[in-house]
């Protein structure tokens, strides 16, 4: 049926590239744990939010790993039809929208009218006290 038609499904796997991808992923995973173990408490820097930087580094590392997994192990890089990539990436767009809008709610309750949160406060008072304690010294 399909003979005489020089179509080949998918891409041909290259074991050399695969090996490098695997090694790269392991290095990134080790790096992630390295970021986590960084002894930032001991550094004499207080003009920078090192906790935030640590989180951002870990996040960037995770995103890189996801990119490599999707690109090479799932084969998104080799897809000839752009559509597959569009479909696969568009859900990240939807999720970003979801996150941003949910945060626009939770992060901004009472931003315009401070009495608003007093009326509708789902947080228990005990947690609020804990939050205040949390804000003062870094853990």
């Amino acid at each position: 049926m399909e003979h005489g038609h020089d179509y080949q499904p998918g891409h041909t796997y290259n074991f050399q590239i695969l090996g490098r991808v695997y090694a790269g992923l392991l290095v990134l995973a080790a790096l992630m744990i390295g970021f986590f173990l960084m002894p930032i408490e001991r550094l004499p820097i207080d003009w920078l939010d090192l906790h935030l930087i640590k989180r951002l580094l870990i996040l960037a590392d995770a995103i890189t790993m996801v990119g490599i997994i999707a690109g090479f192990l799932m084969g998104l890089k080799y897809e000839k039809t752009k559509l597959n990539a569009v479909i696969f990436l568009s859900n990240f767009a939807f999720l970003t929208i979801f996150l941003l809008f949910v945060m626009a709610d939770i992060g901004m309750r009472g931003a315009m009218d401070p009495s608003f949160t007093k009326q509708l406060n789902w947080k228990s008072p005990v947690t609020e006290e804990n939050n205040k304690m949390q804000e003062a010294p870094a853990p």
């Binding site: 929208i97 809008f101 626009a104 709610d105 992060g107 931003a111 315009m112 608003f116 509708l120």
Partner: peptide
């Protein structure tokens, strides 16, 4: 996909989100 919050105008959602 961008408008679901209009079901929650009086539910206690932030006014910023309401407006958007």
């Amino acid at each position: 996909f961008l408008v679901w919050g209009h079901h929650m105008f009086v539910a206690g959602q932030s006014e910023v989100a309401d407006t958007i």
